[in-house]
Amino acid sequence: MSTSKEQIAYQRKYIRERLFVLASQLIIVSIMLFSWEYASNSGHLNKFIFSCPSEIIKTIIQMINNGDLYKHLFTTLNEIFLSFSLGLVMAFALAIIMYLNKIFMKIIDPFLTILNSLPKVAIGPMLIIWFGANAKSIVIMGILINLIVSTLTIYDGFQKIDDVKIKLFKSFRASKWQLMTKLIIPGATNSIISALKLNISMTLIGVIMGEFLVSKSGIGYLIIYGTQVFNLNLVLAGIVILLIISFILYIVVIFIEKIINR
């Protein structure tokens, strides 16, 4: 098969555009980092308050060398993993119960709406009193913040399944179990993935918030501790690590989405 001149030109133009966008992004980031570095080294910026890229990198390398990084990273990732997976399982189960039991749904609907609009941080201090100043409270915080949104997103996906398809299953005398496993759940894949994405970012917020409130280790703890001792290098190192974590989690979710939607 031969490719026409126009097609080649089109592809070239497309690739050029992509490269241009990528290059611009790299340039913007470099300019920002370099001017930040320059401004704090030349005294235009107060290094003590604003830190600078080289100091942040130094701090991170130091933490890698003395093993601190792994400890804090492990604490936070562990909390994220627990809140994420427990939250997702609970959301999934709740959504199924709500779907199968319309009366139950009607009863809890207003409670969900009210709870959903409540800023979950507000109950954080109370959680600490109930569950203690430990990782348990943080995980519960993470779950609380993602559970309702995830549940409603998944439920909404169930709800959107075409009536004609449900009628089709009924015409084959499908059992409730068959209806759920062969139609409702696979049909809601996109909503489940949306819930996954929401869940990941919400969990991250919940866990960091929890760590702000109680923890003795974790990335959130690093940031809070850094502010308390006025070590801005440490604070910004924590933020950079958080950025990296959320970027990796984002990539993982996109990867899962690719696999499911293949």
Binding site: D162, V164, K165, K167, S171, L183, P186, T189
Partner: peptide, 12 residues
């Protein structure tokens, strides 16, 4: 056998 108003094929 019941054939519905739409094809109702499952896309997945």
């Amino acid at each position: 056998g019941y054939m519905l108003q739409e094809d109702a094929l499952l896309p997945w």
